[in-house]
């Protein structure tokens, strides 16, 4: 069978699995009709999720585009609900992106510093290894007390979670850079800065692909974790708010949305890093 036909078949199988899962959920909602509280089914069917649940997202709308939020006497509406989901998603994604970038940058620089010189290694290695062993989620309350509900707190938390992964990944990958490439660059006249920019960084990239995907997962966990505790907006905030009132359907809708975002972000990362390492021979 040709590769193209195999790919086409794979797509149909994927679609089929999705449909089957959706149908199974719907069937479960019809069979298992227990409610968390009156009017709140434990397993909300699709007809609930895409009508009442979606509409209820208006509750988290903070105003704009000429539509009044609920807190200022507005009424629930689909435009308000969609704008609310977009706005809260944007808040979460911005925290995620800024935090991931800051963490990746800091982790990479600190990781490179370990091999840069004897002095930079002495300065960086021990404190970084110490920070690395602190459990991320146990740090949530600490970050909340330090930074309150400010943007910087959530960004710092994500950056911390991503940074420690990058640090470990970079230190490990730098140790695996073939000496022959370093020797070659030095005999061709490369100085220390050029050596790091043109040899060490590209050489560690293939090995860092795994770290990047791993850190993206950690970043999602960290941003939602930070929003559980100290946010006034964002997808994590909606879930916590809904949990307090046992709005299972809202939690489920937002969780679905998060699955869509994480899948998209993993896919985009995979494509981007595959392009950046297109020079590398295929593994295996």
């Amino acid at each position: 069978m040709t590769a193209r036909r195999t790919a086409a078949r794979d797509r149909w199988v994927t679609l089929g699995v999705f449909m089957a899962l959706a149908a199974a959920w719907q069937a479960l909602s019809l069979v298992f009709t227990a409610e968390a509280q009156p009017g709140e089914p434990m397993v909300p069917g699709w007809q609930v999720l895409f009508s009442r649940t979606l509409l209820s997202m208006s509750d988290y709308f903070q105003g704009g585009f000429g539509i009044r939020p609920i807190s200022e006497g507005g009424v629930r509406s689909y435009p308000a609900a969609v704008l609310s989901l977009l706005g809260n998603s944007a808040d979460t994604l911005l925290r995620l992106a800024v935090g991931w970038l800051a963490g990746a940058l800091a982790g990479t620089l600190l990781g490179l510093a370990v091999s840069w010189s004897a002095w930079s290694r002495r300065l960086v290695e021990l404190p970084a290894q110490f920070l690395r062993t602190l459990p991320l989620l146990a740090m949530v309350p600490l970050f909340q007390l330090w930074f309150g509900s400010y943007f910087i707190g959530k960004v710092a938390f994500v950056a911390y979670g991503v940074g420690v992964l990058f640090f470990a990944g970079v230190v490990n990958a730098v140790g695996n850079v073939p000496q022959i490439h370093i020797d070659n660059a030095r005999t061709l006249g490369a100085g220390q800065w050029r050596l790091y920019g043109s040899v060490v960084l590209p050489a560690i990239l293939p090995e860092l692909r795994a770290t990047m995907l791993l850190s993206l997962g950690a970043a999602w966990a960290a941003v939602l974790g930070a929003e559980y505790l100290g946010a006034q907006s964002g997808l994590g905030y909606i879930i916590v708010f809904a949990q307090q009132f046992a709005f299972l359907d809202r939690m489920f809708l937002v969780a679905l949305l998060i699955v869509v975002y994480t899948s998209l972000s993993f896919w985009a990362f995979d494509r981007l890093s595959a392009w950046a390492t297109r020079w590398a021979p295929a593994a295996g």
Partner: peptide
């Protein structure tokens, strides 16, 4: 051994 930079 091969010293050519594979990323260039």
């Amino acid at each position: 051994r091969d010293s050519v930079f594979p990323w260039l």
